[in-house]
Structure formats: structure tokens, C-alpha cells
Design a protein around this nucleic acid. Sequence first.
DNA 1: CGTAGTTTTGTTTTT
DNA 2: CAAAACTACG
Length: 782
Amino acid sequence: MDLLNQLNDKQREAVECTEGPLLILAGAGSGKTRAITFRIAYLMAEKSVDPWNIMAITFTNKAANEMRERVNKVAGMGAEAVWVSTFHSSCSRILRRFADRIGYGNNFTIYDTDDSRTAVKDIIKELSLETKKYSPANIARYISGCKNRMTGPEECAKDARSPEEKNMAEIYRRYNDRLFKNNALDFDDLLIKTVELFKKDSEVLSYYQNRFRYIMVDEYQDTNRIQFEFVLLLAAKHKNICVVGDDDQSIYKFRGADIRNILDFEKHFPGTKVIRLEQNYRSTGNILKAANEVISNNVERKSKKLWTENEEGGLIDMFYYDSAPGEASGVVNSIIKTSHALGVPFHDFAVLYRTNAQSRLFEEQLIYENIPYRIVGAVNFYSRKEIKDVMAYLKTIDNARDDVAVKRIINVPKRGIGGTSIERLDRYASEKGISFYEACAEAEEVPGLGRAAGKIERFVTLIRKLRTIAKEETAAGITEAVINETGYRKELEEENTEEAAERLENIGELVSKARLYDETEGSDGLSGFLQEVSLVADIDSLDENADGVLLMTLHSAKGLEFDHVYIAGLEEGVFPGFRTLWGEDGSEIEEERRLFYVGVTRARKTLSLSMAKSRMMHGETEWHRASLFVEELPAEVVHFHSEGGGRSSYGSSYGSTGRYGTSYGAPAGYGSREGRGGGSQYSGRQPYGGSGTQGHGGTQSAQVPKPSRSAFSYKSFTPSEYKVQKASSLSYGVGDRVKHVKFGEGTVTEIRNQPKDYEVTVDFDRAGTKRLFAAFAKLEKI
DNA sequence: CGTAGTTTTGTTTTT
DNA sequence: CAAAACTACG
């Protein structure tokens, strides 16, 4: 068939090998998604496999949607019936049908990280442990870690030696009990309980085994033990299991990903065929060379070498900035310059960083320069207070056993039900062995409530009323009812502030999302909506076609690619983070290196790296030296720039972070490399933005608007009158006096005609000399 | 019970 | 430095 002609030999081999266990080791940019997509199409078209007998597991919902679309394109109709989704949504779907077989209600609630933390916090209080040593976040992390290793509370208690460990195990035990009572599952439970269901109920298991005769798992290197178990059980019968992964891109060890799953796959499935995809179609030769070189420093890996037929491309840039604001400004200016020079849109650019906290400086700078941007992560739409509040109402309506949800909204909007009342209700509930909501329902029986009892009764009446409405209504209808009947809308309207308006807008957005869900085929009312919504990730709602520079963490960038990539904050202590530097375990540094490798291989055409010698971290200015990864780059493909011209002393003397006893520390050639690439055409001056660059950091924040929040699950910023349109001619010339909206008055010293715009150099009276693009700057002749 | 003010705490990374 | 959590007062 002709679809095979669109593949290389290896890819074709992978597509044609449909029966039995198959491990595809696919390097970055080697067309693995293409291979999977075609494989699904091939199964359907050539092997006459029914689409509903195929399951493909991806890492994000976004990847799932894209894959479904692509399969549709290649295979034509029928692809909707292929089960493409993430581990978590697959499990959620399975449990929605069969959770009752392991003692849960099928309308269980899914707890997100916040909810889990709240539950843990409650338990800590219940046990009256000092919140000092036992922070809810830490304990929640500990519990999640245990779950991912498939260690139950009993086992933890047995292994516990110190009293602290005993307490942790006890919290863990109670946490599990509580979730069960609340008919709630956390993210990890979705996997655990599904596996439990499969093991307990052979009927259910064989149902799904027969249903999913062909299973494919993408990003297999990031699966954890339970996910592996899940796959193992499902594939046990037909053994048509195809996993695709790259051990070099395993970056989720911290949440239980077990690299052994990929390294030992052949042991678990004897007779596995292994196919390697090593031709890279994405990046330039130089970028690939850098990536290969860096990753070769890792010991724990299956050796492979990516190659490409792509052109060599330009050198990779490495910039050393004096400060973090300087870095932000340098990166943004470089984006502006490149965008104009090449005449390419801003959505071809991505800025990647290690931690979400780093995004802010870039946001501020982008707003300052009036550049549209979109940011993934940071403030998840579904973790906004107003959204969580409304969601808590919906959860309460759907599943009254969800104590966390009920407690969240019992006094929102304010009903005069305070902490003491909640405590009394809580005690009453636990003494009687009923749920918190049930306790509310019999408020007059609860001792000591006084006049709060009446208020609680009114709350219960409200919930009952909403439940009645829920029986008749769609998800969107119920959401509307919640906003109106509870007085939530009214409260916000009366507040009459900008923030309240924004909240209302967000709530409106939630209603639209509910409506969208209602219109989806196979939608399943309120319960279905809640469960779907609980599993959306930040990256899922990213529209790559919208314009704007993309800002995200390196983790979020996995699976994506961009023409022009900037990786910022390449400093020891930031990337790799200080935690990994101190750990004596070399494997942590290796994971960071893989993360860097993932970042580097996102780039198609250009890659620009940067570090800031100083950076504000928890209130203090910290000095860092360059990341050890910078040292590992092959010098011949990197152009090392330095900021500030004559100031070549970026190196040696800054070492206040201290010396790390690890074998990775103190690279020999450090500091000498700058000379090699030095004296660049940029040295001495920022590419754009002139002499004032450094100074901005301190003063600009006063004049720059705060990054705005929007109604979507990623933040974005679109300048109101943003348009790149080269004017046919300019109203001013060299020597003229002009006025700029932010920089004030100045004299034009130079005008250069660039392909897409005029580049105007202006000597401002107050702000110094700046190079501006005419279309952006909107200079006025005076 | 609610608010305003104070103190404390903290940085990975995410489904 | 900022957000969250806690405390004391009205």
C-alpha cells in the first residue's frame, strides 16, 4: 500500500511488525509519532483490525487528540473508535464503569494535588501532629511516592523505624481510608485501583483483554511501575504490545517513572522485536551534534547515535548575562531581532526554562516590548479559586461523600459558618461514622452548634435544590444553576472590582467548557464532565497556531518542536538545580542532563542558550556559575558570546554557590572557552535594546503592567494593537526629533531598511540609545 | 465570626 | 521577595 512509501526502512519495519511484542527505541525527532500513527492505520487498512480493538496510550490529552486526528487523516474514517488516551483517562473511563466492583461508587471524585493536600492537612490536624515537621505538601509527596512504588500503608508501617516514619505511615493509612470513605481517588489511585480491579475481577480483565487486542504505548520511558503493571495485564492475552520510547528522554523519575521498564522490556516479553529509529528529521546537524555529545555523558543508557541528512545549520549561541532581568531582556530582544530579520512569526519561538518561577521575568519583558506571548503552566485554569469553588459545588452535587469539596464551599459565599462549626460537624461525623455532609443534614442533632445550625440547614437545602436541578440538566445547565443559586455570581458582581470581573469571566469560560462537553459525542452528564476536567493538563489546551512567543518549562516541552528555541537559566543551582547537585547520587544529574537533551532536541533551526551570573532567589541575590552542561557542549558548534564587552571576567570569581564535592564540579577548561568565541559581532552591546538593558531590571517594573490573567488555562498576552506591518515610508528621517510612548523624546540617528521593517536608531534624552522597529515603536515626529 | 495585620515559609519538574 | 498561613483584635 502506498502509505508505506512515506516511511523510511526502519519506520516501515515498525509499522509492518504488528504481531507480538515490539519495542521501538525512537530517538528525538525520528518520526515516532508518524510510525505509531501509520501503524494504527496499517492495522486497520491492511490487517482488517477493527478500530475498537486498538488502544494507544499517549502522555497527554493533547498528544492523544493529535494522534486521533492524524490517524483519521491517514486511515480515513473509523479512527474515532480507536481508544486513544492517557493512562489516567483510560483508567478513569474503566473505573467509571466498574469501580463498584471494588467497593467504590462509579461516580467517584478525582482529587487533584490540592485536594490531596487538603485531606492530608486535615489528617495531620486530626492526629494533632506539629505541622512543623509534617508539611502537608511533603507528606502528600511521600504518599504519592509510595503509591507509585506500589507500597501500601501497611508495608510502610512495617518498614518504619523512626517515630516520624511511623507517623507518616499512619497518615498514609488514614489518608487512604478517608479517600475511600469520600468515594474519591487521587491521580495515583486511578492507576492503582484499575490494576486492583483487573487482578480481582477476571471477568472485567478478560473483557478488556479481548477488547484491546493491539496496544501501543507512547513515551514508554516515562511509565512507572503501576502503569507497567496495567499494560502487562492488558497485553497478557494477545501480547500484541508495542511500546515506543527513548531512554534518553526519561525525565519523570521524580514521579515514579522507572527507566527499567524500558531497559527490561525484553525480559518481561520474551521474543520482543527491537527496532531503532535513529534518523533525525527535525534538527540541524549542529544541534544534533550538540545533543549527541551532551547525552553521551550519561552512563545509564542504551547507546545510540542519532544522525541526520539535514543541513549543518548555524552555530548554537551561548550568552552569558550579568543578571536575570538582563537575560530576559537579551532573550526577548534576540527574538524580536530574529523574527524581523527572518520575517517569521512569533509562534516559531519558544523559551524553555527549568522552573515555572523563571517565567515571570520573560513575561514582564515581553509585555514591555509589546510582544504577544503564551505561557503554559504557571496558573492552571482549573486551579483558580473561583473555578475550584464552582467545581467543589459540582462535586458536592455529584458525590456527597466528597468531604473535601463540601468543606470547601460550605462557607463560600459567606454564610457565617466558621471554623468552630466545621470542627463540631467534623467531630460529630466521625463519632457517628457518617460523612461530613450527612452531619450537615442533621445539624440540629449536632451539639453546640447554636444558631449556626440554621445556617447549615439552609446550606443543605440549597444543595438539595441543586441536586434536583441536576437531575434534569446538562453539565452546563447545572454549572449555571450553581453560579446563580448559590449567590456566587451576585457576590462577585457586587464586589465590582477588576479582579472580580476577571473571576466572572473565568466562570463564564467554565460554563462554555461544560457546554462544549455536553455537545461532545458520548458525553456523560455532570459526572463525566467532572472526571474529564480533572484530568486536563496545562499543555492540553495549547493552540500552536495562535501567534505569540511560547513560554514553558522543559518538561512541558516534551514532544513538541519549534524552529527557534531558547533555553534560559543554564546555571548551576538552577539547571541543574541545587538539589541535584548536592545529591551524591549521580543518577539525579543524569536525569537533569536528559532534560537538557530534551530541550536541545526541541529545536529545528536555531538554538540559543543563556545564563545569568546573578539572580534573585528567595529574596537574595545569588551568584551562579554556568551549568556544567554548557561545558559539555562540543565547542566547535557553539558561538560563546559574552555580555558587556570588555568585561570578560564572568568566570572564576563568582563562586559563592560554593564548591560541590561531586565528580562533576570544577571543570578544567572553565573560563577559557569564552575567548574562543569572543569578539563576536555582538560583543560590547546587546543585539537590541542598547545600553540601558541592565538598568531596566530595577526600574521598569513600575511602568510595566502586571502580566494579565486570561480565561484560558494558559496565560497569554496579546497587545491590543499588534500588527507587523511595514510602513511604506516613514514620516521622519535621520536627525528628526521623535517621541516614543515609553522612552520619551529623542533624536533619530540612523534608519536601516530591513526586509520586514525599518530599524530605527534613536538617541533618547532620558532612556539612552535604542534600536527600534518602526512598526512596533510607533514613533511620532515632533 | 470575620478581618487586618503579622509571621513564616519556600523553589523543581506533572498526570 | 512573594504568597500563604497564622494570630490577635474588633
